[in-house]
Write a protein that binds this DNA or RNA. Structure first.
Length: 112
DNA sequence: TATTTGACCAAGA
DNA sequence: ATCTTGGCCAAAT
């Protein structure tokens, strides 16, 4: 079942917990590709704006990046989510950054 | 089908 | 540190 690239992107976006942000690069890596741009493009089209939290995706540089509804709007939402920003950048970017889980190592009951 | 575009990224000057 | 350039991948034209 080949889901569209956009579908994968939306799926990844939905995995992002509230109050956290991720980068287009992380998503690309998670999808096993380097289509950072395509990721942003997919969201840019955003056929389902409110259904997918695309506002939790920022640039690798820690900058907010763009947003279909406007960067300011994106910042506002992020702030509402609990992610503070300053001068178009995320504060404690690394701390707020969310890494996707590639392969979940099921911890056994006796494990660890 | 080929070319252009884009919410990007990394490296070079 | 900033600015510029090239590369990258998928979708749109």
């Amino acid at each position: 079942m080949d889901k569209t690239f956009a579908e994968k992107v939306y799926k990844a976006l939905s995995l992002i917990p509230k109050g956290k942000v991720t980068t287009y690069r992380e998503i690309g890596s998670f999808l096993g590709t380097r289509a950072y741009r395509a990721v942003g493009n997919a969201c840019g089209k955003n056929p389902n704006a409110p259904k997918v939290p695309c506002h939790r995706v920022v640039r690798s540089s820690g900058e907010i990046g763009g947003y279909a509804f406007g960067a300011a709007k994106k910042i506002s939402i992020l702030k509402n989510e609990g992610v503070s920003t300053q001068n178009g950048r995320v504060l404690d970017f690394k701390d707020k950054l969310f890494h996707f889980k590639k392969t979940r190592v099921k911890r056994s009951a006796s494990a660890r």
